[in-house]
């Protein structure tokens, strides 16, 4: 229950923060969420990771789908030299998840 609450809170805080702040505000968002809902380090890492994996991956997928992947085709070629929209969505999800997971982990050590 706590785990799901943490995932939801991290997701909400991240989306809200990114409306006004740079992309890396997902890190302080996950950090805060982990302070508000303390968990074991392993769970904290996982909840932060999953939260942003879902938010960034989901948003990217939603946007790309409505775009019929026009942009994702081109950008995946540009960055990865391979034409694979899914890879670009996966990379987006992974980056969000890693940053948020680590921030969440860092906060989890501060409280028991």
């Amino acid at each position: 229950m706590k785990f799901i609450a943490s995932v939801l809170l991290t997701a909400l805080l991240s989306i809200a923060a990114c409306l006004y702040l740079p992309w890396w505000s997902i890190a302080p968002a996950a950090f805060m969420s982990s302070i508000i809902i303390p968990q074991q380090p392993g769970k904290a890492l996982l909840s932060g990771f999953i939260a942003l994996l879902l938010v960034w991956g989901g948003l990217a997928w939603y946007i790309s789908n409505r775009n019929e992947h026009i942009m994702a085709h081109k950008i995946s070629l540009l960055i990865f030299q391979t034409d694979n929209p899914l890879l670009l969505v996966a990379a987006t999800a992974l980056i969000g998840g890693l940053v948020a997971g680590l921030a969440s982990l860092s906060a989890s050590y501060l409280r028991r």
């Binding site: 990114c18 992309w23 990217a60 946007i63 409505r66 026009i70 942009m71 960055i79 990379a91 969000g96």
Partner: peptide, 19 residues
């Protein structure tokens, strides 16, 4: 990559819906 792929800031924001 973080800045570019952030769905709320980066290139995804330029992926205009076909409709």
């Amino acid at each position: 990559l973080g800045k570019l792929l952030s769905p709320q800031h980066g290139i995804w924001q330029n992926a205009e819906a076909v409709d």
